[in-house]
Amino acid sequence: MTKIESKRGIFALMVAHCAGMVDLVALPVWVGTLIAHYHFDPQQAGGLATLFLIGAAGASIFFAPRFNRIHVKFAAIFGFGLAGLAFIISGMNTSFPILAGLHFAGGIAAGTALSVTHGTMGHAVNPHRIFGIAGLAIGIFGVLFLGGTPGLIEKFGGSTMFFILAGVMLAATLACLLFFPKPTRTVDFDNYENIKNLPPLGRPVWFCMVGVALLAMTQAMTLSFYERIGLERGFTRDMVTMALVIYGIVTIFPAPLAALLQNRVSVTAIIAFGPIFQAIFSLLTTHTHNYMVFALAGPFMAFTILFVHTFAFGLLARLDPTGRAVAGTPAMLMVGAAIAPFISGTLVKFISFEAIGYACCVAVAAQVYLFSQTRKAVLSGTALPKSVIKDEPVPFA
C-alpha cells in the first residue's frame, strides 16, 4: 500500500481533505444558492447546511475513537462514494424534507471518510507538515470552486451546485481507491484489548478540541452568510463573486506558511491568541458598507482559521500519538460549524447581520480561554503524553 509521504499518498490525502472539508469553501455559495434558487428563508437554508455538518460531526464522533479498529481505506472509499450519491440525488429534488434527509445522510458519509483521512494524517512522520500541504490544496481548490461555481449556477440553475459537489466527492472516491496510504508510523499494541483499553484523552487535549470546534463555529457563522451580506450591502453580483475569488486566493497561503513556521514560532501562542483576529474580521465583515473592507475581512477570517488550525492539528497529534484526537478533527470542526449556519440564520431572521459579529466575539472569548488552558498545561509539562508510537519521540516546539 502507498506510504503517506509518497507523492501518490499525499495526492490522495489532499483530494480527500478538499472533499471532506468542502463546507469550508462552499458554505457561502451553498447557503446563497438555497436562498436565491430554492427560495428557502435564511433559517431553512442555514438549517440544511447544518444538517450536513451535524451528520459529518456525528460520524466523526463515532469513528474517531474506533480509528485503530477499522479498515480506513474502505471507510474513505465508501464514505466519499455515498456522499457523492447523496449530492446527485439532491440535484434532482427541490423538496425541503427530501433535501434535509439527503444532507444529513451525505454528511454522515463524508464525515466518516474525512475522519479516517485525518486519522491517517496523524500517523505521518510529520503530521503538521502533511496537514499544511492539505491546507494548500484546499486553498487552490477554493480559488477554482469560488471562481467558477457561481457563474455556472447562474447559467444552469441551482441544481448545478449539488452536481459540482457530487463531482468533488466522486473524485475523492477515485483518489482513495487508487492511492489511499497506510500509516507511516506503527502503533505498538500487543492485542485488541490494548486498543480497547487505551487511556482517556487528557484535559489539555479536550480543551484544545473544544477550542477548535469554536474556531470552526466562528468561521462558519460569518462565512455561511458572507455572500448574502455582500448583496444586502448593495454590492453587485460580480463584486461579491470577486470577493469570493479573493477569499479563495487568500486560503492558499495560511497552511503552507504555518508549515514553514512550524519550528520558528510558539505553537501554543499561535493557538491561544490567533483567534482574536477572528473577532476583528467578523465585526468588520458584518458591519462594513465599504467594499474593500468587506472583500478583505472575509478572506482574512479564512486565513485565521486555516493558520491557527494547522498548529492545533500538529499539537493534538503530539498530545495524543494514538491518532484518536486528530481522527476527531471532523467532529471538532463540524460540531462547531454544524450549528453555525442555523444560529446565523436565526440571528439574521430575527435581528440583523450585525448580530453575527457580536455572537462571534463571545465565541472567540471562549476560544482564548480554552486554548490558554492547553497552553498552560503544555508549558508546565503536564500535557506531555507517554508515546505509544514505536521509537517515536513526542516533541514540542
Rank of each mutant, 00 (worst) to 15 (best):
K349T: 12
A365I: 11
K349S: 11
V388I: 15
Q373L: 15
V388W: 03
S352M: 01
V378N: 07
A366W: 09
A363P: 00
K386D: 09
F350M: 05
P393G: 04
I389V: 14
A365L: 14
A377W: 10
F350G: 00
T346V: 10
K390C: 04
G345Y: 04
S380Q: 12
K386N: 12
V362R: 02
I351P: 00
T346C: 01
L370T: 11
V378C: 13
S387C: 03
I356A: 04
V388T: 13
A363M: 14
A355Q: 04
G357Q: 05
P393D: 14
F353A: 03
G345N: 05
A366T: 11
Y358S: 05
L384G: 02
S372W: 12
L370S: 08
T382I: 15
S372Y: 09
T382E: 15
K386Y: 02
P385G: 05
V388G: 01
F371T: 11
C360M: 04
E392P: 00
P393I: 09
P395Q: 01
Y358V: 11
V394C: 01
D391E: 15
I389G: 00
F350C: 00
L347C: 02
K386L: 11
T374E: 09
G357S: 10
R375C: 09
F371L: 13
P393L: 10
T382K: 13
A363Y: 01
A377E: 08
C361E: 05
F353V: 01
V364Q: 10
Q373H: 11
D391K: 08
S352R: 03
E354K: 13
Q373G: 05
A365T: 13
S380M: 06
T374K: 10
V364C: 10
E392L: 04
C361N: 03
T346D: 02
G345R: 08
I351Y: 12
T382M: 11
L384I: 11
V394P: 00
P393F: 04
R375I: 02
V378Q: 08
Q367N: 14
S387Y: 03
G381E: 12
T346R: 07
K349P: 00
